[in-house]
Simulated scan of single mutants.
Amino acid sequence: MEQKHPLPPFTLDTARQKVQLAEDAWNSRNPEIVCKAYTTDTEWRNRAEFINGREEVKAFLTRKWEKELDYKLKKELWSFTENRIAVRFEYEWHDSNGQWYRSYGNELWEFDEHGLMRKRYASINDVAIEMSDRKLS
């Protein structure tokens, strides 16, 4: 059976580790790598979009990083329970016209017993910024 360590139940240390692993994977901007952290039947809400299953996640991420260029993400653990983690995050990116944005949000994650994420609910807002205002690099 596929496993993605650390496994639940989470402690403060393993929850922080899970968040850092997610940040590292997303900063790779590689949909093949990122989608392996999710169950094959994962359920997502990303902004107003509903995504079901690992293959839809991969397609979504491919579209995302074709639009959100030079993407850089920072996640922070907000809270956790046995198999759930809440994070806050911000990321910066620019569009094909060179306009930079900082996106802020919160995610609620639920994991199965194998450490794969089965649910991800994300609320995200974008703010246009000047390149000189970037904080992440």
Rank of each mutant, 00 (worst) to 15 (best):
Q99S: 08
K74T: 07
W100I: 12
Y101N: 02
K75F: 10
K75H: 13
H94K: 14
R102F: 02
S103M: 05
T81A: 13
T81R: 14
S96F: 10
G105K: 02
D70G: 10
E68L: 09
E92A: 01
E82M: 00
S96I: 10
E66I: 03
Y101K: 03
V87Q: 03
D70A: 14
K72N: 10
W78E: 09
Y71P: 03
E82W: 00
S96R: 15
E82P: 00
D95T: 03
Y101R: 03
N83I: 02
K74V: 11
I85W: 09
N83Q: 05
K74M: 06
A86R: 02
Y104A: 04
S79D: 15
W100M: 12
I85R: 10
Y71A: 12
S103I: 00
S103N: 07
R88F: 13
N106D: 11
W93Y: 13
E68R: 11
R88A: 12
S79I: 06
F80H: 08
K74P: 01
H94D: 10
E107V: 07
Y71K: 08
N97W: 09
A86Y: 02
S103T: 10
Y91S: 03
N97S: 13
D70S: 14
Q99F: 06
N106A: 13
R88D: 15
F80W: 07
G105L: 03
E68I: 06
H94N: 13
E107L: 07
S79L: 11
Y104K: 08
N106Q: 14
R102P: 01
N106K: 08
L77H: 07
N83Y: 01
E90A: 09
I85D: 04
L108I: 12
Y101S: 04
R88K: 15
N97G: 09
K67W: 11
I85V: 15
H94T: 07
Y71N: 13
E82K: 04
K74W: 04
R88I: 14
E66M: 06
Y71M: 13
R102E: 06
L69D: 06
R102N: 09
Y71T: 07
Y101I: 01
N106V: 11
E66N: 12
E82F: 00
T81L: 09
N106I: 06
Y71I: 04
G105Y: 02
N106L: 10
E76R: 12
D95Q: 02
R84M: 12
Y91N: 05
L73K: 05
S103A: 12
D70M: 10
S96Y: 11
E90S: 11
Q99W: 03
L73A: 13
F80P: 00
E92P: 00
